[in-house]
Design a protein around this nucleic acid. Structure first.
Lengths: 260, 260
DNA sequence: CACACATTCCCGATCATCGGGAATTGTTTC
DNA sequence: GAAACAATTCCCGATGATCGGGAATGTGTG
């Protein structure tokens, strides 16, 4: 059976090609793409040609990189850019008060995807990366997103097997349920050393018009015990500002929530 | 000749689908995609299915949006994110001194592509958009990129027919050549009302290790005549900072340039 | 110069893609 | 609530774009 096309779809191959590029491999040669995407040589070369023709890849000599046109297309249409732009000014406010890393994350495929970060360029360990992912159960952002997010997401989340990172990582479903309830009651989440010790996250939800959390805003501070209350109120003010900037005036809903 | 596949490649169709989404159309139904991408209905539906399978599209009821996974993949591998992250802190510095819109742009396909903007949320008309394009010859950012960019780009640029936007837009090749020389000599570019009247751009180049401009940093101010010198030195300090942050220590080159 | 590797080019077989059409479901409108 | 309209899903045969092995050529390296 000599020339049989492999079963997977064209799109999937393209994804593999794009996935071949990452933070450590911003430029690749065609042969490297073939290897990393596990494609037959000639197939890889043909795909690269097609992508070049559409400017989805840029060529510099024999090195290839993801095209800026691709970034442009995706950014224009994705909701990420809008969210990021709405949030940035408020994140700066938080930053000026709290002074450590300020991070914005959303829920995607049962993980936290970080879409923006501004940081004092030294202070704390920066485990969060823009366009990077972390597990829901081990991050403060993850828990607020889960606590105030859509109900169906919570179900599937609690049904999954969760990995431990340090001895303070909570993986037990019942305990997580308890923590989620707590977060819902308090309106924020503090989590210490669930992935790396000596690093505390404080997160609050950013609500949409329906009152579901669509993003989590958080600060990462060196250790617990600082003036938490200051951070929390700065975060909450900012979160409300972001909602308003996005045209989701949460005032009414907030009032209801508070009066309960 | 009933069922003949249309001539264009798969990738091109996918691009058309992605292009169907933009700032005004962040969510589309499958039928809208078919119309906007000019695809036969059943083809569009099949493509949408494939894209959903790879999470390149997200589905919300019957509305579709560009998947955050797509944004993630592209951002991770693209040089844009790195540049943006390196630049942001310095842009904030500029912002705090100058107080109007501060913008970062790069050259792509003979146009200026803006990749970051921070702005006083009211002051000036914001013609620049993140992930938006403007022509080279009518923007200050465009001219610095051209003046200090790779030589071959200049050739093709000057050979092209250029549109006028206002009566101050420079389209004459010889005059442009003169302006480019001027920019090279001064080290910055000031341009007033070349696209919309009453809006002045001031731009400086951000150099890479080889001494070619890879980005243009600029501020947009309401009208000419303000304390230009302040803006320019703020921009230049920032630009040097960005180069350094990217690991391209421009000190040596700057010294050479200055001593000429 | 020899060797390894990257890149380009060629080509026949195969099967995923194409798109018309019809059936089904959902949404407006009067 | 019924009719008119649009959106979505499903089916299926014909077609040609895609597949990938292989050979030739280019590039760099010790």
């Amino acid at each position: 059976m000599a020339n049989s096309p492999s079963g997977d779809s064209m799109v999937h191959r393209l994804v593999r090609v794009i996935e071949a590029f990452d933070g450590e491999h911003r430029t690749l040669s065609a042969a490297e793409i073939a290897r990393r995407a596990d494609l037959p040589t000639s197939t890889a070369y043909r795909l690269v040609d097609e992508l070049l023709a559409e400017s989805l890849l840029d060529r510099d000599g024999r090195r290839l990189r993801l095209g800026t046109r691709l970034w442009e297309l995706v950014s224009r249409g994705s909701k990420v850019l809008g969210l990021r732009e709405a949030a940035l000014p408020f994140m700066e406010d938080v930053q000026s008060v709290v002074g450590h890393h300020t991070v914005l994350g959303i829920l995607d495929q049962n993980e936290v995807l970080y879409i923006e970060r501004i940081g004092s360029n030294s202070s704390t360990i920066n485990i969060t990366k823009v366009a990077g992912r972390l597990p829901v159960h081990a991050t403060s952002t993850g828990l607020v997103l889960m606590a105030f997010g859509p109900a169906d997401a919570q179900e599937t989340f609690l049904r999954r097997r969760l990995p431990r990172y340090t001895d303070t990582t909570t993986t037990n479903p019942d305990e997580l349920r308890r923590r989620l309830a707590e977060v819902r009651q308090m309106g924020f989440c503090v989590m210490t050393g669930a992935i790396v010790p000596e690093s505390t996250g404080v997160a609050v939800p950013v609500f949409n018009a329906e009152g579901t959390a669509i993003a989590g805003l958080s600060v990462v501070i060196p250790r617990a015990g600082g003036p938490l209350q200051t951070s929390i109120s700065a975060l909450q003010t900012a979160a409300r500002g972001i909602s308003r900037a996005l045209g989701w005036d949460g005032t009414l809903r907030d009032a209801i929530r508070r009066s309960l």
